[in-house]
Amino acid sequence: MRHQGLVPGEIRAATEESDTRGVRAECGESDAFMDTGRAPLWQEEPAVRRRMADPVRTAAVRAVIIVALTLIQAMVAFLCTLAGSWFAFPAVLGTVASTVVATWAVLDVWVTRQVWVQRNGVRSQPSSTARELRRERRRARRRQRRASREDPSRIDRAAA
């Protein structure tokens, strides 16, 4: 089998397809055997929400990691306090500091998102209703301008 003009992924797919065809033929299986009439186990569904912007996603990942570490640190401080360990006091101080940092990280996600939206805007398409209303307003303005060019006295009467 020649693989001229195919990219690596296509070569692998073509090779796998020929391999499975050969195995089926050896076992006496056909394509009808593979069609069981059941729904496939995995179905692709379109994403409901758009992907976050890169800076916002980076800040969110950082915030999740910091919050997770803060929660672990708080649990260690709590368990050390229950056990009466000498490490309880430094752990509690560290937890308080980490809570401040975690709060800052979560606020950073919010601020980064607001800044990104302000700089790049929300990319949305207007609904057909809004588009149609704008077209109607444009048509009315054009008619009014055309009428004002043809008969200037008409505008004075319309305004009065």
Rank of each mutant, 00 (worst) to 15 (best):
T15F: 11
E17G: 08
S18A: 15
D19H: 13
D19C: 13
R21P: 03
R21Q: 07
G22R: 12
V23Y: 13
A25N: 10
A25G: 04
C27M: 13
D31V: 11
D31K: 12
A32D: 09
A32T: 05
D35M: 10
D35L: 11
T36M: 06
G37R: 01
G37V: 04
G37A: 04
R38G: 10
R38V: 12
A39R: 11
P40Q: 03
L41V: 14
W42I: 15
W42N: 15
Q43A: 15
E44T: 14
E45P: 12
P46W: 06
V48C: 10
R49Q: 09
R50D: 08
R50V: 06
M52S: 07
M52A: 14
A53G: 04
P55C: 01
V56F: 00
T58D: 06
A59I: 00
V61C: 07
R62C: 05
A63D: 01
I65Q: 12
I65R: 10
A68Y: 06
A68T: 15
L69Q: 14
T70P: 01
Q73C: 08
A74S: 06
M75Q: 08
M75A: 14
M75H: 14
L79Q: 10
T81P: 01
T81M: 07
L82A: 07
L82K: 07
L82H: 04
A83P: 01
S85H: 15
W86T: 15
A88D: 01
F89I: 14
F89Q: 14
A91E: 07
A91M: 04
A91G: 03
V92E: 05
V92F: 08
L93S: 04
G94L: 04
G94H: 02
G94M: 02
T95C: 06
T95H: 03
V96A: 15
A97G: 08
S98Y: 05
V101K: 03
A102V: 03
A102L: 01
A102M: 02
A102K: 02
V106M: 03
L107N: 11
D108P: 02
V109G: 00
W110H: 05
V111I: 10
V111T: 03
T112A: 02
T112L: 00
T112G: 00
Q114R: 11
V115I: 12
W116A: 03
W116I: 00
W116M: 01
V117I: 12
Q118M: 12
R119G: 00
R119H: 05
G121H: 02
G121T: 01
G121Y: 01
V122W: 04
V122H: 03
S127N: 15
S127M: 05
S128Q: 13
S128W: 14
S128G: 14
T129W: 14
A130S: 09
A130V: 13
R131I: 13
E132K: 13
L133Y: 13
L133I: 14
L133S: 12
R134T: 08
R135E: 13
E136S: 09
R137S: 06
R137F: 07
R137T: 07
R139L: 08
R139D: 08
R141S: 13
